[in-house]
């Protein structure tokens, strides 16, 4: 049983559902705990993606994860988008729906990026109301992820973690704690990632994200293109000591290796949580 505010379950150790793995998953039904679905990839299609999603949702627990809610944008909420999102959540019996603490565009334009918020009182008040409105439309609590950021606004009067924590409390939303993003943003802004982790309200964390990144020397890009580094595993262990068992998801979006490799990376999280490692060879017959 989960220890978060809503008793949302610890789904175990999952990976993101990606097109390159469709055939493998349908043919082999691999022994994975759960899948995270990129919402926008399935909202407007009646083709193979939806067919695969239905097959996956029939067999595995799923969670929806979006990139276009733009909850921090000063544009009006896209009600058509939210209606489709709710329908998809209902169709897949998703355990929860998540997106990012960010904005993706204004004036009717979508930049298709997770753009950073200025952490001000005005932003906080505004975002609290938006999150409440979205939760009401979706008829379930919204879960928000801390994005990787590459700049800081001089107008910010809150730290990111304080802003996120207060938002979660005031708007009654969950937190998808992306441990890699904590590492990336703290490196880019010269902050202490352990202090960030220690200040996240543990009872709000309903999911973890783990991923690899690309170190450019002067900054780090959140590319989801590699194995998780030791420093991120260390932060994950530190956070798990505070939150207990929380659903954990491994993201891999560039140079995606085979399903077995991605799943094996996700299963490393078991060891870092102090759980016995599964018999991977037996699971995959290798």
């Amino acid at each position: 049983m989960g220890r978060n505010r809503w008793d949302l379950p610890d789904l175990g150790f999952g990976i993101g559902l990606r097109t390159v793995h469709y055939s493998y998953i349908l043919a082999n039904h691999p022994p994975i705990d759960w899948f995270e679905i990129l919402s926008e990839n399935y909202m407007d299609t009646g083709g193979r993606p939806l067919y695969v999603l239905d097959q996956v949702a029939e067999r595995y627990p799923v969670v929806l994860h979006g990139v276009s809610m733009s909850v921090g944008s000063t544009d009006p909420l896209n009600l058509g988008y939210l209606k489709k999102l709710k329908a998809l959540a209902d169709r897949t019996r998703a355990h929860w729906v998540s997106d990012h603490l960010c904005w993706t565009g204004v004036s009717g334009i979508n930049v298709h990026d997770l753009l950073p918020m200025p952490y001000t009182d005005e932003s906080l008040r505004y975002t609290i109301e938006r999150v409440k409105a979205v939760s009401e439309i979706l008829e379930r609590p919204l879960v928000l992820e801390n994005p990787s950021t590459y700049l800081e606004f001089g107008t910010s009067t809150w730290s990111e973690v304080e802003f996120l924590s207060t938002l979660a409390q005031e708007a009654d939303c969950g937190i998808l704690l992306d441990v890699n993003n904590v590492y990336v943003s703290c490196f880019n802004h010269g902050l202490d990632p352990e202090a960030f982790i220690d200040r996240v309200p543990a009872d709000r964390v309903v999911q973890y994200h783990l991923a690899g990144h690309t170190h450019k020397g002067t900054h780090i890009l959140d590319t989801h293109s590699d194995h998780v580094i030791d420093e991120v595993w260390s932060l994950y262990r530190r956070s798990c000591q505070r939150t207990g068992g929380v659903a954990t998801l491994l993201e891999w979006d560039e140079n995606i290796p085979s399903f077995e490799v991605v799943h094996a990376e996700a299963l490393k999280a078991r060891r870092h949580r102090g759980l016995p490692e599964p018999d991977h060879q037996r699971a995959y017959g290798t």
């Binding site: 000063t74 334009i109 107008t155």
Partner: peptide, 16 residues
């Protein structure tokens, strides 16, 4: 300082 709406309009204009 620009408010939230103007900050976003400014940043988007620069990005595009």
């Amino acid at each position: 300082a620009p408010d939230l709406g103007n900050t976003q309009k400014w940043m988007q204009a620069v990005i595009l």
